[in-house]
Amino acid sequence: MTTPSRAESALRVVIGTIATFVIGALLLVLTGHNPVFAFAAMFRGAFGSIVAFASTVDKAVPIGLCAIGISLAYRGGLWNIGAEGQFYFGAFAAAGFGLSLPENVPHALGIAGVVACGLAGGAAWAAIAAAAKVWLRVNEVLSTLMLNYVAILWVDYLVSGPWADPVTFSFPYSPELPDAARLPAPIAGIDLGAVITLLAAAALYAVDRGMRWGYELRVAGDAPRAAAYGGIRASAVTASALVAAGALAGLAGAIEVAGTTGRLQSGLSPGYGFIGILVAWLARSSPLGIIAGSVVYAGLLNGGFSLQVSGVPSAIGTVLQAVLLVCILTTFSLGRYRLRFGAAVGEAP
């Protein structure tokens, strides 16, 4: 694989984005909608007002946290397809903590507990796959994938049974978390979840820039034998990265229940963990790219919702999410072809 220059990468992203718009417009026209109108409405719905933007940021936070974790695990050569399940398990742990809080607990303690439980819950869920990988050599793509649905069904069970809210009896909701366990509303426009996400991105940057753990992770991910040669315990390092990825996804789940919804509920995530995978790949491991990508993908999600009023099915947002990824990845991949067959740049023998 050749690494394209920064300008070349930017050009490819632009081409991929244009292609996405063209494909999206085509779909809209074919189904009898006005693409200009629809795209404009989507943009307004995602970024057109303070309220819209705030709602987009609310969705960008879980996407971003999941993507940062996925990207981190991938540095160690591990796929975390299980961010969705870790998100749910983190949300479960956080909600469990919040719901069992006695009265008159200080707010700071409540928030700290919720965050810690989210981290621990996600980490624990990922640790199952990590342990199976280290001791049984179970492929983590499949194990994390399978664990997703177990976690989702577990939460479904709780909110429709033992933790069901007696007030909203017919809905699969838990009771609301007490105030002490709720994240504060944005203060002066600063959203706590957004701050945490930016901190996580900064941490990812530090991992790349010079942390020894990050270095060992990259070596272990690239060449496990070289890691053994260099005295690195490859399986331990990569497993710790997978657990850390789970912790981040679990944190996203905690922020969701403690900040956005205020309760544990069925269908808590519209696929944040999966969208996170798309964003992590789109960003090609860059922390800044992940932040930008999660805002864009959250915008597509939000913009899609706001379209419903105008009669265009909201699923167009989901379609564009997938098409955008495929288009951009394809431009990069086709660029590789040009280099292979055009110039005399082959693989070294």
Binding site: Y215, E216, V219, D222, A223, R225, A226, Y229, G230, G231
Partner: peptide
């Protein structure tokens, strides 16, 4: 070498400290 004494996709600088980084 590649994959055993050296991590192929890491830079020469990163490979130069492999085994010395602790």
């Amino acid at each position: 070498h590649l994959g055993t004494a050296l991590a192929p996709n890491l830079s020469i600088a990163e490979n130069a400290i492999l085994g010395r980084h602790r």
